[in-house]
Design a protein around this nucleic acid. Structure first.
Lengths: 359, 359
DNA sequence: TTGAAAGCGCTAACAG
DNA sequence: CTGTTAGCGCTTTCAA
């Protein structure tokens, strides 16, 4: 009884906006119902545009909503309906220049659909990913976009069991369990090599990324397939650069010790190409006169180097926005039919490969 | 009655994990209570480590929790307790190279404190910010970090009324209403100019950013104060570059039309410095031999140009991590005493200013 | 030290 | 077409 009375007073205070410091009180669905003279169910119906509602009634409700400046409470909705309007983006490191643009793509379409994006940096460490996933599950996240590399088959299956829609980027064979988005890594690599050949290169090296990554692997494969029939081809033309700037720099030096006559380098990603450019500069090798250089990814950094870097550009922003679109569709339709999207890449020829074609 | 029966069966199914496709069922606090033979209140107490709980009882509860693999549901917690363990980071554009590192700083400490970060790109457009804030309010966000520029006094006050803790980065006078984090923009500018002078420059220009931004303004001011007493000083040595690469490129060309004898340029941020470098290259002006060039911010890009760019480095990552720390403290202690944190900047002298000192 | 029970604000049966 | 009501899973008095 006592409780009731206290609650009653609390309510009165709420309604009258008596709250000391002028704190704003958010109207609830009940307030709206009362003001409109209908039940909360009816308000809920007009809110969610489901079920039948008389036009007149709807108008009354809408008016009440406007009058009270009512906004439905997303948390309560989440609890009741199991949908929070939140998706998570798990990526290795937002500070890696490849990911911000992709994140932007995700965020833009999420925003457009009324979703909110939670950002997670995994550093490609399995335990971080798992702890994120735990946390995201607790928060009733609606779905996850995975741009990270350490996602295991087991995790995917677990997500499935938890009914959490999943879209992964740049991952291989998990195919039948969730939608996958990637771009033409193999074809892109071939494109890069062909371009170097067309620019007159006659001994082309490759700096490759971590072979656990399907992208790095495919690009290496594309290189190999493109050059293995040449007489100059030899395995020592392929050196690792770990997808990092310093790796590219080191790799290029290693390369030139063994093969001072290299006249073209295809780097597995742009960061390594930037490192390679640096390394070549330090070696006194001119780009593109002595060596033509091309990267992969198409990140913005390739435009600020001197010379500007040729690259095989992936549609990074689109990969993100498509991922979000696919995920949200999965969430909203409930259809879990996994699909594979392979996006096209494009050769971007800039100064770093602009040499005279030799006969 | 019918309902009860159905629910009853549903519950049984849940408990027995009969759910067709092997979908996982998450244990609830009630399950734990039942298994431990206590009430949910008790479980809640051990969960939140508040209130008295007998050691024995606690053990039982803990065992039940472990046994059921129980994880408290964050959404329900949010509804009941008004705290969701989620903070928002509103910034202009994650694709702007300045922000990823800052975002990383925010995310890292958030993660460490068990919080989750929602990413919002405002593009510095007021309406986007407002719509984000609406959305975030609905979601019971615990606090907001603002690294964006169009936050008005009214918004800050509104946040206050809604009791949403707020930390802003790089903003000026909103001082008494929320905590502010920024770095020494004025001093940094003076540092940059002094460095150019020490390197022997005798006519120094400045490319400045949008004057609506306090940071750009302070840097411009620092420049002016440092050079206005020189005979060569004239207002046309200051041109706008909009904090963008292309702006810097254009600015440098404008500058050289009027003042071909410039031998030093201080750019209000690194992006403009990169553009300036490009422009100078196109003009055939050598850096640093003919012109020494220095930027501001200390973003990673400054290390990949040729020559590498000197810059006044802000502790970008720390700005982010500090912001998160301050925000979370505010959230958890409830203390809203606003503070101002001004972080130190550091001169990073690289090749772009490495010229012989003239007597 | 513990339990009962009233919410938090909304959704979704079900019954008119 | 609309209202009643039982939850969603947790926190938090209040009583015991």
């Amino acid at each position: 009884m006592m409780i009731r009375i206290i609650c009653f007073f609390a309510k009165i205070c709420n309604r009258l906006h008596i709250k000391g410091d002028g704190e704003e009180i958010m109207a609830t669905i009940r307030d709206v119902a009362k003001l409109a003279g209908v039940s909360v169910a009816t308000v809920s119906r007009v809110l969610n545009k489901n079920g039948y509602v008389n036009n007149k009634t709807e108008e009354k409700v809408l008016k009440a909503i406007a009058q009270l400046n009512y906004e439905p409470n997303a948390v309560a909705r989440g609890l009741a309906g199991k949908q929070t309007g939140t998706i998570a983006l798990i990526l290795p490191d937002i500070a890696n220049p490849f990911f911000p643009e992709m994140a932007r793509g995700v965020e833009d379409v999420a925003q457009a659909y009324g979703y909110t994006v939670i950002l997670c940096n995994s550093d490609d460490q399995g335990h971080k990913e798992k702890s994120y996933i735990e946390m995201l599950k607790k928060k009733y996240i609606d779905g996850i976009i995975f741009a990270s590399n350490t996602l295991g088959q087991a995790d995917v299956e677990q997500m499935r069991r938890n009914n959490i829609p999943l879209v992964v980027l740049d991952r291989a064979p998990t195919r039948q369990l969730c939608s996958v988005i990637r771009s033409q890594n193999y074809e892109g690599a071939r494109l890069a090599v062909r371009h170097l050949l067309e620019m007159g290169c006659r001994k082309i090296a490759h700096i490759y990324g971590p072979q656990e990554l399907i992208t790095a692997k495919k690009r290496l494969l594309g290189y190999e397939e493109s050059v293995k029939h040449f007489p100059w081809y030899t395995p020592s033309l392929m050196v690792p650069g770990h997808f990092r700037v310093d790796g590219g720099l080191r790799a290029v030096k290693e390369l030139f010790e063994k093969h001072p006559d290299i006249d073209g380098i295809f780097c597995g990603n742009d960061l390594m190409a930037i490192g390679a450019l640096k390394g070549l500069y330090q070696l006194g090798v001119r780009v593109p006169e002595d060596v033509a250089l091309i990267g992969f990814d198409g990140i913005g950094l390739t435009e600020i180097t001197q010379p500007e870097l040729s690259t095989v550009a992936q549609p990074i922003y689109e990969m993100g926005s498509l991922a979000a679109k696919v995920l949200i569709e999965t969430i909203e339709t409930g259809v879990t039919e996994p699909r594979l999207y392979e996006l096209e890449v494009a050769l971007v020829a800039r100064d770093s490969t602009k040499r005279r074609t030799e006969a």
